[in-house]
Design a binder for these strands. Sequence first.
DNA 1: GGCTAATCAGCAATAATTGTTGATTAACAA
DNA 2: TTGTTAATCAACAATTATTGCTGATTAGCC
Lengths: 149, 149
Amino acid sequence: MKTPAELTELFRDRGLKVTPQRQCIFRLLQGNQVHPTAESVYGAAREELPTISLRTVYQTLSDLQHMGEIQQLDLGTGSMRFDPNTDAHHHMVCHQCGKVRDVYAEFPGIELPRGRDTGFAVTDVEVVFRGLCDECQPRTRDTRKVRYG
Amino acid sequence: MKTPAELTELFRDRGLKVTPQRQCIFRLLQGNQVHPTAESVYGAAREELPTISLRTVYQTLSDLQHMGEIQQLDLGTGSMRFDPNTDAHHHMVCHQCGKVRDVYAEFPGIELPRGRDTGFAVTDVEVVFRGLCDECQPRTRDTRKVRYG
DNA sequence: GGCTAATCAGCAATAATTGTTGATTAACAA
DNA sequence: TTGTTAATCAACAATTATTGCTGATTAGCC
């Protein structure tokens, strides 16, 4: 995603007004690594602008997505996640808490097997690693917390 | 997924009754390669049992999933897809029509980069190929259908 | 300063899925 | 064959994420 300053320029160029709501969302998204939902962006934005509406948050996120500035991810956690990182990368999702982390790696071996599947024009490849994050793993042998016998 | 006969046995063993509705769904799923939604299983089941309820379809699909007989896939097409194929495999999804096809291939190179990301215990890796299926591709050069000049 | 887009509150709508309830049916074990 | 009990049904309501609408108000920007 571009910086808030660059987004300001981009919006103005397109004839869109740069409101405090939009600026706030730009700021909340920049460098954001937690893949927030619309609801959680809304929650954070309300700390600054208590009267901002959820509708405006959805609208601005949708605008940014259509401009290619953020990515909308459906990782099966119930709601869409928004990712300001538009570089090619993959994701890791915790089964339990839904936490998402970026995975920066290229997997050159991934392509459709030739022969069958002809006619399918692939545009994107997503790799999703699913499992348990550090916080959600059972810690039976963690001596800092529990000690039996 | 096990065969309908084996599922019958499995259900009985667990004290579950083998009703015509359940048998019908077993049959509809066996060998099914189209990754149906609950709604489309419902549609097909009603041809045989016109009074079957959508609720019963959801219930039976959920039972089968909890028994590990089918897989529930969220591929971002709006509703869950049900896959009787429980072997390790991946998927191909059409952006336009939502059609899903299986991809049988192993991608040995896929693993989390070491060093960072310690503490994340990966249990599954999903690869999703997205693009346009043969039917949804624009056919500008298909001489069978259009010929310019 | 004025035009006009953006936002707001306050709803309604949608779509997929799950829950509920009370009556009826039928599977299966004894 | 019969009794117990689970399964199903119709007919709802509830939920959650998201989008749409409306009319009034605000405020960005030329």
